[in-house]
């Protein structure tokens, strides 16, 4: 039941990316927590989603730019991490998720080309309301189907192989987690705004100090 629930979750959340709502329930931290909840450990899902969030946030969904598909990526990564916990598994889960996210991004390009043929062209002298509504809703359904299929590939096809690979992880937990932290910090660094003077650095350090204070 879990794989099926994850696949359906992936298809549903993928709609939020562009087709319907954009309430950001498709962002990795939300998708990760939900996938973790389906798998029985929301915090593990949130951890995977949080790191992927840092990686994906610098990639803006602007204009016609193709972007990695964060929903199947996160759901796949959460599925891997649930099957083989540990620092090595987290690293392998992230790579499996990133690969599926990249592939999902390509399918978004294919979908957009298909929809180009689906939607009516202007300048025909007249269009019926039904034509406009049907083509639009068909495009939304196509996006849901695309998200579902990419998630299915990740959860059923990639996740078991990645979990098996993770069992052969040779590095220590300390080295592995340091590399993962660095990857996430790199993504956050890309978002850091350029403020005049030392204001930006002061705010950054204030944020680090607050987090450290809570953790310690």
């Amino acid at each position: 039941m879990e794989p099926l629930s994850l696949v359906l979750l992936g298809g549903l959340l993928a709609l939020d990316e562009t087709s319907f709502g954009q309430f950001m329930v498709s962002r990795p931290i939300v998708a990760g927590a939900l996938a973790g909840w389906v798998l029985g450990d929301p915090m593990s899902g949130f951890l995977v989603g949080g790191i992927l969030e840092c990686v994906y946030l610098p990639r803006l969904h602007v204009g016609g730019a193709l972007f990695p598909d964060g929903v199947p990526a996160t759901v796949t990564a959460a599925a891997v991490y649930a099957q083989a916990p540990g620092a090595g598994a987290l690293a392998v889960a992230l790579v499996a998720g990133l690969a599926i996210g990249e592939m999902g991004g390509r399918t978004i390009g294919v979908q957009r080309r298909l929809v180009s043929r689906l939607v009516p062209a202007a300048g025909q002298g007249g269009l019926s309301p039904r034509q406009v509504e049907r083509s639009h809703l068909a495009a939304v359904a196509l996006d849901g189907l695309r998200g579902t299929m990419v998630t299915a590939l990740g959860v059923v096809g990639v996740a078991p192989i990645a979990a098996w690979l993770a069992r052969h992880w040779p590095l220590t937990a300390e080295v592995t987690t340091s590399l993962i932290w660095a990857l996430a910090a790199l993504g956050v660094g890309m978002l850091f705004p350029r403020l005049s003077g030392v204001r930006g650095v002061a705010l950054l350090l204030a944020g680090v100090a607050v987090a450290a204070g809570v953790l310690l």
Binding site: L203, G207, V208
Partner: peptide, 20 residues
């Protein structure tokens, strides 16, 4: 912009939980 700078610091600090 200042809110984003502060949020970046918070996130980097909080992410240290992945490196126990």
């Amino acid at each position: 912009l200042p809110l984003l700078a502060l949020a970046c610091g918070l996130a980097v600090g909080a992410l240290s939980i992945v490196a126990p």
